[in-house]
């Protein structure tokens, strides 16, 4: 790809912040299960995937840094709520395990598909990162798919819980695909095909798993997507999360741990 224009850089940064902030915030949220997971084996698997997410965030912040933004640690810990571009789905408290699993399924399916699309990106630093994490994300979706399937086919209570979690998560999950004002720039420069294309692929993917599991998929077109996160408007839950996450950094920005 030749030299990026000013508008292309702005568009690219917007995309990177959305993606990286999603990874960081959900990585932090999912790590709240560490030590409290339903069984030891799942606790370890879920914590490990949360750690993967922080790794993805770091790789994306690294690209932002090369584009002139602050150091990854500073981006992660020294911004205020308004500057975060994560979607509402990632901010929600962990709730019960059904909610966290459903969020994991809906988010990671979108994430894996997004990275698949980005592996074809003309912007090489991004396509390299996307290719690097493909295998990791394949495991994440395998893990999510099997849990959704198993719980939906177990007891009546489990099935009802999964259905409630799905109904609760769906409008939030649609917020992942909040359109950006830079969609055209990104697709014309072959950096990223766009949120609409991604959402279509995602709908197809989750529909197939949801149907297999016997849950009812609400009519997606009739739902009101939880938009605003991409523009810095967040739920009441992000601020306390940031306060907790940045506690050490706020006391001593140069602390090493």
């Amino acid at each position: 790809m030749s030299e990026l224009s000013e508008i292309q850089i702005t568009a690219l940064k917007d995309l990177l912040y959305r993606m990286a902030d999603d990874e960081l915030i959900l990585g932090h949220r999912n790590s709240e299960w560490t030590g409290l997971g339903p069984i030891l084996e799942e606790d370890i698997a879920f914590s490990s995937m949360a750690q993967d997410k922080i790794g993805h965030a770091q790789a994306l912040y690294e690209i932002l840094h090369k584009l002139g933004e602050a150091e990854p640690d500073k981006i992660a810990f020294a911004r205020n709520e308004k500057e975060f571009k994560c979607c509402h789905l990632t901010e929600m408290p962990i709730g019960e395990y059904d909610f966290s699993l459903m969020r994991h399924f809906l988010f990671d399916t979108a994430e894996a598909l997004r990275f698949d699309m980005l592996a074809q990106s003309d912007y090489e630093p991004l396509s390299n990162v996307a290719k690097k994490f493909r295998g990791e994300l394949k495991y994440h979706t395998m893990h999510a798919d099997i849990w959704i399937d198993q719980l939906s086919h177990s007891s009546e209570e489990a099935k009802a819980r999964m259905q409630t979690a799905l109904n609760e998560c769906l409008p939030l999950a649609l917020g992942i695909f909040e359109p950006s004002e830079y969609e055209n720039v990104l697709s014309e420069s072959k950096i990223f095909e766009g949120e609409k294309t991604l959402q279509d692929k995602w709908t197809e993917a989750i529909t197939s798993i949801i149907q297999k599991s016997g849950l009812n998929l609400p009519d997606i077109d009739s739902l009101k997507p939880s938009y605003g996160g991409r523009k810095g408007y967040h739920t009441e839950f992000l601020k306390p999360l940031l306060d907790e996450m940045t506690e050490v950094y706020s006391i001593d920005p140069n602390a090493e741990w």
């Binding site: 084996e41 370890i44 698997a45 490990s48 495991y139 893990h143 099997i146 198993q150």
Partner: peptide
């Protein structure tokens, strides 16, 4: 077995 494989990967 399906769950065992999924969990074994991370353990």
């Amino acid at each position: 077995p399906e769950m065992a494989v999924i969990l074994a990967k991370e353990q």
